[in-house]
């Protein structure tokens, strides 16, 4: 087990290496450059030349890449060209906020999605099922762009229960966490339902019933546990994307997380910001996939980690 974890963490190195190479090559080959304003007067050519030289953008791509990786090994993600802040600072300030929001969203998603999926599977084609699947459909199809302003209108402006936006108090976290969690909750509900429907028809469930095991215990211990495998599979990438910043939710609720850096970095060709965000995301993705594999073994003893 420990050696499995160790090996998987070692795998992080080649994965990050390949992802960083691809990202680096892609972003430098896209037209446009970081020192070119839009809609206003461009910088004089001498100034652009000086800035490019200062940041070493005139070197060949492999040289630039090696220099970047050298700095990365020292833990330096470089400066943002647009704001002159260090990307380390940006991650240090934004990641805890995005991660907190993402965790809260995940708690919402799990605590709504899984019970709903179980309930609708156990009551297939009855009112509960129809209601749950309607919720799931709505949750998937209504984007945060729509639901967030609606929530603000209802709970802040009309009822006055919650502040409109920003980050810092638990009241401010309620709406963004729910909005962020609803979409994944709907996905999880549908997955859980489908998986549960399959499992409760298995022979061993009938055997358990025949032995007189109480229905609650059959549902939770025998059925749900086995039905959770596909759910756990999607939780990995879901976790990684939720904790590294939700662009839309963070923007609408004016939350100073990492979500906006990705988009902002790409549109202003802020190369170090793009690289930093991709690497942080990859790091979380690989780690959460590892956690998923560990969870498989916990849920299903037939799965061995070697």
């Amino acid at each position: 087990m420990l050696s499995f974890i160790f090996r998987r963490i070692l795998w992080l190195i080649p994965v990050l290496l390949v992802i960083s190479m691809i990202t680096f090559a892609l972003m430098l080959s896209v037209p446009g450059n970081p020192f070119e304003g839009t809609g206003e007067r461009p910088l004089p050519p001498e100034t652009v030349a000086r800035l490019r030289a200062h940041y070493g953008l005139d070197d060949s791509i492999p040289v630039q890449y090696l220099r970047y990786m050298q700095n990365l090994l020292r833990g330096d993600l470089g400066p943002s060209y647009a704001t002159r802040r260090s990307v380390n600072d940006m991650v240090a300030a934004g990641l805890p906020i995005s991660a907190t929001l993402g965790m809260l969203g995940l708690v919402v998603a799990l605590s709504i999605g899984i019970p709903l999926g179980v309930a609708s599977a156990l009551n297939q084609n009855r009112a509960i099922d129809h209601f749950a699947m309607f919720f799931a459909m709505a949750g998937v199809s209504v984007p945060a762009m729509t639901s967030a302003p609606l929530f603000i209108w209802i709970f802040s402006i009309n009822l006055g229960w919650l502040p409109v936006a920003r980050w810092g108090t638990w009241q401010q976290a309620v709406m963004p966490a729910i909005i962020l969690g609803i979409g994944p909750a709907a996905v999880l509900a549908r997955l859980t339902r489908a998986s549960m429907l399959q499992v409760i028809r298995e022979d061993y469930i009938r055997t358990a019933r025949a032995k007189g095991v109480p229905e609650r215990r059959i549902t939770i211990q025998h059925a749900l546990k086995n039905a959770l495998i596909p759910v756990i599979t999607v939780l990995g990438p879901l976790f990684a994307s939720m904790v590294t910043g939700a662009v839309v939710v963070e923007r609408i609720f004016a939350i100073p997380g990492m979500g906006g850096y990705f988009v902002g970095g790409v549109s202003s060709r802020d190369y170090p910001v793009i690289m930093g965000m991709v690497l942080v995301y990859t790091f979380f993705l690989v780690l959460s996939n590892l956690a998923v594999d560990l969870a498989y073994a916990w849920v299903d003893p037939r799965i061995r980690l070697e």
């Binding site: 402006i157 409109v164 004016a254």
Partner: peptide
Amino acid sequence: LIVVPQQSTAMAMYENGE
């Protein structure tokens, strides 16, 4: 100086007295 990227959110904050 409160940073709010989304204009509609800022408008709601204004109406809410924030």
